[in-house]
Amino acid sequence: MLPEDALKDLLSQDLRDRDKALICLATDPVGPREIKDVTALAFGAGWRQVKRKNLSAIFKATDGLAVRATKGWELTSAGSQYVAKLAGPLLNSPIPIVASSLRSHLVKITDPDTQTFAEEAIVCFEARQFRAAIVLSWVGAVSVLHHHIINNRLADFNAEATKRNSKWKNAKTVDDLGIMKEDTFLDILQALSVLGKNVKQELKKALTLRNGCGHPNSLKVAEHKASAHIEDLIINVFAIF
């Protein structure tokens, strides 16, 4: 979640012991850590006083932000979101904040495939695999829109699709909708007032970026570009449908 090379900067801030301890649990590679491992990590990053701290007591007093698992202490979902909001401004990076925002929408996604796309997008984004994060977040957003049509506007959608293409075979499943080009799919959603004109235009920009990232080429994407792409999908798709 947090790169290890950022730990020194974070632990040098004027933070409570609880926050410093939670930040250590959020440092890559994320996973359960024994107290001795947390202590060694923190001490090596400059938190010299950690050897005099009762980390077990600190974690127990985090009100559910950390939990003792079989192999050690680890963050809960609430803990991950807490650290992301705490660390993002300190690192001057959008990655923890945007990842936390997208993760907060996971609980609202009921379809397991869509949830998997979103989870993988978060993992890629946090790992700074920005092209992969752009592709997977787009796939997740389109999956959300597909399910919205199947569950709410399927008859209207098929009627509009047939009007535009007499050879269109009425869709019955999400896979059927996937046959249609995504650009055309967005046009139909605007025609049905599922999307507004400006939202559709923004999503088409996102589609263009997704296509650029999904094919072999020399395109390079930095964190702010990927962050803006994912934020657009969050506010226009994941938070709405």
Score class of each variant (00 low, 15 high):
5 D>T: 12
7 L>W: 04
8 K>F: 01
11 L>M: 10
11 L>S: 04
18 R>D: 06
18 R>W: 04
23 I>T: 02
23 I>W: 03
23 I>R: 03
23 I>K: 00
27 T>E: 05
28 D>P: 03
28 D>T: 08
29 P>R: 05
29 P>T: 10
30 V>P: 03
32 P>H: 00
33 R>Y: 09
33 R>P: 04
35 I>R: 08
36 K>Q: 12
39 T>K: 12
39 T>M: 06
44 G>Q: 07
44 G>R: 06
45 A>N: 05
46 G>F: 02
46 G>H: 09
47 W>D: 01
48 R>P: 00
50 V>S: 02
56 S>A: 06
57 A>V: 05
57 A>D: 01
58 I>N: 01
59 F>L: 06
59 F>Y: 05
60 K>N: 11
63 D>I: 07
63 D>S: 09
65 L>H: 01
66 A>R: 07
67 V>K: 12
68 R>H: 13
68 R>I: 03
70 T>I: 10
71 K>R: 12
74 E>Q: 05
76 T>I: 09
76 T>Y: 08
77 S>G: 06
79 G>H: 02
83 V>Y: 04
83 V>W: 03
87 A>V: 11
88 G>H: 03
90 L>D: 04
92 N>L: 07
97 I>M: 09
105 H>Q: 13
106 L>Y: 12
109 I>W: 10
114 T>R: 03
114 T>I: 12
117 F>P: 00
117 F>H: 14
118 A>I: 15
118 A>F: 13
118 A>M: 15
119 E>L: 14
121 A>L: 11
122 I>C: 14
122 I>V: 15
124 C>E: 12
126 E>M: 10
126 E>Y: 09
127 A>P: 10
128 R>Y: 10
129 Q>A: 14
130 F>K: 14
130 F>Q: 13
131 R>S: 14
134 I>H: 09
143 S>W: 12
144 V>D: 08
146 H>F: 11
148 H>C: 07
149 I>D: 05
150 I>Q: 01
150 I>G: 04
150 I>F: 07
152 N>D: 00
152 N>H: 06
153 R>E: 08
155 A>P: 06
156 D>Q: 14
157 F>R: 08
157 F>G: 04
158 N>M: 06
160 E>W: 00
162 T>L: 08
163 K>Q: 01
164 R>N: 08
164 R>T: 04
167 K>D: 13
169 K>N: 15
171 A>T: 04
175 D>F: 03
176 D>Q: 03
177 L>K: 04
178 G>S: 08
179 I>T: 12
180 M>V: 10
180 M>Y: 07
183 D>S: 15
188 I>K: 00
189 L>I: 06
190 Q>L: 11
192 L>C: 08
193 S>P: 04
194 V>N: 03
194 V>M: 05
195 L>E: 05
195 L>G: 02
196 G>C: 06
196 G>H: 08
198 N>G: 10
199 V>A: 14
203 L>I: 11
207 L>Q: 02
208 T>G: 10
210 R>I: 11
212 G>H: 09
213 C>A: 15
213 C>N: 09
214 G>R: 07
214 G>K: 01
216 P>G: 03
218 S>N: 13
219 L>I: 13
220 K>Y: 14
221 V>F: 10
222 A>M: 11
223 E>M: 08
227 S>F: 08
227 S>A: 13
230 I>D: 02
231 E>L: 14
236 N>G: 02
238 F>R: 11
240 I>L: 15
241 F>P: 08
